[in-house]
C-alpha cells in the first residue's frame, strides 16, 4: 500500500523542529511500524539524507525503549507498544503523523528520540526495597497471599516507556510512579519503606516538572501493559497516610 508519513524532524535539542512529509509507495501490511521506518531510513541513507532517529531495542514489546506518538496517540491506535504495531492497522492512502513523546520533562534529543532520565531519577528516589546482597532470608519464610502477589505483579509489568506521560493531557507521570508504589507496597517486603518511598518518589516526580494527575485515565488507556488507574489511588492513599502520620 501507499502511505504518507509526516515525521517530526529536529536536529538537536535547541533546534526548532518541524514536521516533514515522506511518501512510501510499497508498504506491506505485515511490516511492523518500525520496520516501515527502517525501510524509509534505508532509502534516506542512500539518498544521502540523514535517516530519522528513533529509539527501539527489543522490538517485542517489553524493553520500553520505543515510543512514538502516532496520529496524536501514544504508541498509535492499538493498545500495544510502537514496535508491536503493524501496518495492517493502517490503510492505503493514509497520512500518518509521527511525533516524539511531548513533555517538558522528556526533552527531545533528536527527531523522535527523547530523554527519559527523569524516570530513573524517580526510581532512585525510593522505587526499591533495600535488600543488600546476601542478607535475604529463605524465600518461603515470607508467604504472600496470592491475590496480593498477583496485583503486585500486574503493577510490576510497567515497562517504563513513558506513554502515560505522552498521553496525559497534563504531562503527568503519576501512572509510572504509582505502578512502582503499588508493586512494592502490596508486598510484605515493601512495608518498612512504604512511607519514605511514596514521599521520596512523589517529591522527585514533582521536582522533575511533570504535571499532576486529574484522574482522566488517558494514561491507562494508552498504557501498553494496561497498568490500572487504581494504582494512582493507592499512591494517593499512601502519600496522605504518610503525611497524616507525620512522616514528611
Amino acid at each position: 500500500m501507499k502511505i504518507t508519513v509526516r515525521v517530526w524532524r529536529q536536529a538537536n535539542p535547541s533546534d526548532e523542529g518541524k514536521m516533514v512529509g515522506y511518501d512510501l509507495d510499497d508498504v506491506s501490511e505485515h511490516m511492523s511500524f518500525l520496520e516501515m521506518l527502517d525501510v524509509l531510513n534505508e532509502r534516506l541513507t542512500l539518498e544521502g539524507e540523514e535517516p530519522i532517529a528513533f529509539d527501539s531495542d527489543c522490538r517485542e514489546g517489553i524493553c520500553g525503549m520505543c515510543g512514538l506518538v502516532i496520529n496524536g496517540l501514544a504508541h498509535g491506535p492499538e493498545r500495544t507498544t510502537t514496535c508491536q504495531l503493524h501496518m495492517r492497522s493502517f490503510k492505503d492512502g493514509d497520512v500518518i503523523d509521527i511525533e516524539p513523546w511531548r513533555s517538558s520533562s522528556f526533552p527531545v534529543v533528536k527527531d523522535l528520540v527523547v530523554d527519559r532520565g527523569a524516570f530513573d531519577r524517580i526510581i532512585q528516589a525510593g522505587g526499591y526495597i533495600s535488600a543488600p546482597t546476601g542478607s535475604a532470608p529463605e524465600a518461603n519464610n515470607l508467604p504472600v497471599p496470592k491475590e496480593n502477589a498477583d496485583h503486585a505483579f500486574e503493577a510490576a509489568t510497567c515497562i517504563g516507556c513513558g506513554a502515560c506521560v505522552a498521553a496525559c493531557p497534563n504531562g503527568s507521570a503519576m501512572l509510572f510512579t504509582a505502578a512502582k508504589i503499588t508493586h512494592l507496597g502490596l508486598l510484605p517486603q515493601g512495608q518498612p519503606e512504604r512511607a519514605s518511598r511514596v514521599l521520596g518518589m512523589v517529591e522527585q516526580h514533582d521536582h522533575e516538572g511533570f504535571g499532576n494527575c486529574t484522574n482522566i485515565g488517558e494514561c491507562t488507556a494508552a498504557c501498553p501493559k494496561g497498568i490500572p488507574l487504581d494504582t494512582i489511588s493507592r499512591l494517593n492513599r499512601d502519600l496522605l497516610g504518610a503525611l497524616a502520620k507525620g512522616k514528611a
Binding site: I129, A139, A149
Partner: peptide, 14 residues
C-alpha cells in the same frame, strides 16, 4: 531466589 524475593520480585505463588 532468596535475594530476588527480598527485593520484591513478584514470582508466581500458590
Amino acid at each position: 531466589i532468596d535475594q530476588c524475593v527480598a527485593q520484591g520480585v513478584p514470582f508466581a505463588r500458590e
